[in-house]
Design a binder for these strands. Structure first.
Length: 886
RNA sequence: AGGCGCGUGGCUCAGUGGUAGAGCGCUUCCUUGACACGGAAGAGGUCGGUGGUUCAAUUCCACCCGCGCCUACCA
């Protein structure tokens, strides 16, 4: 096959598209072009509205997954759409150091080399992480460029950059001085494997099947002693009291007594505590282990009880646990203690028990509540304004149902443990002198602020990674400096992210933004769903992971983007199947081929897309539909309904433009009988539809639309800044829509009739339209008769009452007769009878309704009227059809 | 335990107080000068169950069943 057989006048290669659609051949070219033309930087007059987003900075732990691709696609759709509607758009890129997650990645790497991070030392280890970070950042950047993200790379940031680190330090110092950061000894969530404290949010609760043990403690003076229940017998070595409810008659005899801790022999006061003890549960007696349970810790504070740490940071029993158990792992200790209790006859009962147990979000190790000195943010004073901001509408969630979840969490929020016993992150700016004083300051202090001692040591710990992420919407612009960028681009407009980090990040950004800048960091939060495949979370073990780059290689970036946007409904899951990807690629191919056809019509002179005055019915119809589609895309995008917006442009382009309009006008474009004026009207209309479709689709499929745009308009790389098409009231033409829809219905009816009569598509069918029917569309139908004959492949079309023997029907209000030059078979007749009985059923339903007095009485008049009309239509069809079969 | 959400054709999902929609898949036909990653026609659903409100419920309410997710200090 000779490539590109030339048609007369079609020799200009710049106006031709290759026969095969190959996205890889142009994607990178266009991204480089946009970058070179600095299209991703905010531009346009300062008076035009701005649209600002910050990227949720991906962790520098590795590669982006398909979930990132979803979020970035939605953001890019918004960025490109707003750019095209004339906004000054800024979308800030960057990455997150992701303290614990990244440190773990490197530790795993080291482990595979047989190295422990401690042998490298803190500096050596951190240097190694930095080297990794540079690599990971490049990978991530390349991935986002492949996806087409129109991020302003000149403003790229990293949470450990010097200026962002300064923001972190400033925020810490400010909160400390305001009394909103404090240091203290409390029970925190401790991961023994990671060797660090974690926040409540980093603990994943999972149901486990375990046992609950009842243990008898001796109580001098009470023969039966005290039986307590526990799921964690190993912690009993750290008991410092028993607790009962002050109003529980069952345990009244224990009041004021002292119990003896088995094995250890320690005397335990029996305290009365209505908060800790639930009268309705178990024996009504609770063991109090202040060092290993947060509730017990606060109980101990209320009653002035000591805390004994019996499990160390490595989850092994401490010296305090006694010589028999010290050094044992916590679960080995449990076994040993149970054996001892059993041998002492103190184990009263062992029952199966299902309960929730905290696991480390990162490594799945069972979390140990651990008494240690940590830094905390006092959160209530920050949470209150953040609650109000959402209540008062300064920040809104889309979908709005997330506000409920937000409130529920914010209203029961606990202080935030922000210190981490890690090496990778922002070091806590607290310095200790030998006298135990703390100096907190933005610059490294030379001497203790309290006693002036010169020898200071900085706190070895780092901050929770989210402490810096919460500052992201303003730290990227140079806060706390009053930079120009901060003034111009903050607060931002929209934040797009998955709902899984609503608490981790979104809520904290709102709190931090309000506290540090006095402004909510964005007015709208769009929370999208999580990507699932076949209803399941993607996981490497299930082998259903879709890698975005592999998908782009296979289907093209535009198809990946379109599939993601089209799948992004308002629900909590975004279901992505491979078939969706191939379906989106087919759509891109369809656009490609339709454009090839159109380009063939635009020679030798390129139309300018100005529809002439003497438009014909199909032209007016498609422009009316185009205008509607343009309005619909914008309306849906306003609502963050990316799926509906994608659907609107999809069905216009494929079903109306390609299947409808192009097929209707082919004879006018290339047929011998068409007049120059008629051809010109079709060319201009086709050009307008194609150019506007490219623009409407560009936010979703930037590469292929830019590629075709060049061929269609002759402009290179300008689609990205072309005005987004708007709904045009002057193009709205309900009359043309009605007539052309009627035409399409007639064509379908004829094809359908061939099916009923088992006729081949080429068998001649005669159609007659009764001129007495449907007077309002009759003249339009006469105008459209050439198209009707062509599309329906009619052998004859007459505007007269149906002939004897024809199959009668009513289509779009017009009484028609259809006939083939051969008699109907019995099969044909039974099909017709089936249609009739279906009609009868529906007629009966409707007339029953209209016979119902309360329906007539209470239903609104338009509904009754509509029902009447529908019934009349059905009866008309019925009598037409039965006339033919009778 | 509480909260939120979901249960619609084979699959994945939209949607609405007035006799159900899309994409994919399936069946049949069509290699017609843009496109077989295509065109045409078609089959396929008591909208989880039971009650209630209503002239009318897939849509609103209650309860139940099933499935997710989030939050949670019941020893």
């Amino acid at each position: 096959m000779p490539e590109g057989t030339t048609k007369p006048g079609a020799s200009d290669a710049s106006r031709r598209l290759e026969k095969t659609f190959d996205p890889a051949s142009f994607e990178q070219k266009w991204y480089r072009s946009w970058e070179a033309e600095r299209r991703f930087e905010p531009s346009g007059p300062a008076s035009s509205p701005r649209f600002v987003m910050v990227i949720p900075p991906p962790n520098v732990t590795g590669r982006l997954h398909i979930g990132h691709a979803l979020g970035r696609t939605l953001e890019d759709v918004l960025a490109r759409w707003n750019r095209m509607r004339g906004h000054r758009v800024l979308w800030v890129p960057g990455t997150d150091h992701a303290g614990i997650a990244t440190q773990m990645v490197i530790e795993r790497q080291l482990a595979s080399e047989g190295i422990d991070r401690r042998t490298l030392g803190r500096e050596g280890f951190v240097a190694r992480v930095w080297a990794w970070k540079r690599e990971a950042k490049d990978t991530i950047q390349t991935q986002m460029k492949r996806l087409g993200c129109s991020l302003d790379w000149s403003r790229e940031r990293f949470t450990l950059d010097p200026d962002l680190s300064r923001a972190v330090r400033h925020a810490f110092v400010q909160l400390y001085r305001e009394g909103l950061i404090y240091r203290g000894r409390y029970v925190v969530n401790w991961c023994p494997r990671c060797g660090t404290a974690v926040s409540d949010l980093e603990v994943v609760h999972k149901e486990v099947d375990g046992k609950i043990y009842q243990i008898r403690y001796d109580v001098p003076g009470v023969r039966s002693g005290a039986v307590v229940a526990t799921t964690r017998p190993e912690t009993m070595l750290g008991d410092t009291a028993l607790a009962i409810h002050p109003e529980d008659p069952r345990t009244a005899k224990l009041r004021g007594k002292t119990a003896v801790l088995p094995i250890v022999g320690r005397e335990l006061p029996i305290v009365e505590d209505p908060i800790l003890v639930d009268r309705a549960f178990g024996t009504g007696i609770v063991k109090v282990t202040p060092a290993h349970d947060a509730n017990d810790f606060s109980t101990a504070e209320r009653h002035n009880l000591p805390a004994v740490v019996v499990i160390g940071p490595d989850a092994r029993m401490t010296k305090e646990a006694g010589a028999d158990f010290a050094g044992l792992d916590r679960f080995e200790a449990r076994k040993a203690i149970l054996e001892r209790l059993a041998s002492e006859n103190r184990l009263v009962a062992t029952e199966d028990h299902r309960y929730a147990l905290g696991h480390c979000q990162r490594c799945d190790t069972i979390i140990e509540p651990y008494l240690s000195t940590q830094w905390f943010v006092k959160i209530q004073p920050l949470a209150d304004p953040a609650i109000q901001a959402v209540q008062q509408g300064a920040v809104r969630f889309v979908p709005e149902s997330w506000a409920k979840t937000y409130f529920a969490w914010m209203e029961n929020i606990h202080d935030w443990c922000i210190s981490r016993q890690l090496w990778w992150g922002h070091r806590i700016p607290a310095f200790y002198c030998e006298n135990g004083h703390i100096t907190v300051s933005e610059e490294d202090p030379k001497a203790c602020a309290t006693c002036g001692l010169g020898r200071l040591e900085q706190d070895p710990d780092v901050l929770d990674t989210w402490f810096s992420s919460q500052l992201w919407p303003f730290s990227v612009f140079g806060w706390p400096e009053e930079t120009t960028d901060l003034k111009v681009f903050y607060p931002t407009d929209v934040l797009v992210t998955g709902y899984d980090i609503l608490f981790f990040w979104v809520a904290r950004m709102i709190m931090a933004g309000l506290h540090f800048t006095g402004k909510a960091p964005f007015h709208t939060v769009h929370l999208h769903g999580l990507v699932r495949v076949g209803g399941e979370k993607m996981s490497k073990t299930k082998g259903n992971v879709i890698d975005p780059i592999e998908a782009i290689d296979e289907f093209g970036a535009d198809a990946v983007r379109f599939a993601l946007a089209a799948a992004a409904s308002s629900g909590p899951t975004v279901s992505l199947e491979k078939q969706r990807l191939s379906g989106s690629r087919a759509f891109a191919t369809k656009l490609w081929n339709a454009s090839r056809f159109a380009l063939g019509q635009f020679d030798p002179e390129r139309p300018d897309g100005t529809p002439p005055r003497d438009l014909e019915l199909p032209d007016r119809w498609i422009l009316s539909r185009l205008s509607y589609a343009a309005g619909e895309v914008a309306r849906q995008l306003e609502l963050f309904r990316f799926d509906e917006a994608a659907q609107a442009i999809y069905s216009f382009l494929w079903h109306e433009l390609c299947d409808g309009y192009i097929e209707m006008v082919k004879p006018r474009l290339s047929g011998p009988g068409a007049s120059t004026e008629s051809r010109e009207a079709a060319r201009q209309t086709l050009y307008r539809c194609l150019a506007d479709s490219l623009a409407l689709l560009h936010p979703f499929m930037p590469f292929v639309t830019e590629e075709i745009w060049e061929k269609v308009t002759g402009q290179v790389g300008t689609l990205i800044v072309t005005a987004f098409p708007r709904q045009r009231p002057e193009w709205s033409d309900p009359g043309a829509e009605r007539s052309v829809e009627a035409l399409r219905a007639l064509v379908t009816r004829v094809r359908n009739y061939r099916g009923e009569r088992s006729a081949s598509p080429t068998e001649p069918v005669e159609l007659s339209i009764d001129p007495a029917s449907a007077p309002e569309i009759l003249s339009d139908l006469r105008n459209l008769s050439a198209i009707l004959v062509h599309l329906a492949r009619l052998s004859d079309l007459r505007f007269e009452a149906p002939l004897e023997g024809a199959t009668r029907d009513v289509v779009a209000g017009a009484a028609v007769g259809l006939s083939l030059p051969r008699p109907a078979s019995s099969a044909d007749r039974s099909r017709a009878e089936k249609t009739l009985s279906e009609l009868d059923r529906e007629i009966e339903t409707l007339s029953a309704k209209l016979r119902n007095p309360s329906f007539l009485d209470r239903a609104p008049a338009p509904v009754v009227e509509k029902t009447r009309r529908r019934l009349a239509e059905l009866e008309q069809r019925r009598s037409a059809l039965s006339g033919a079969t009778a």
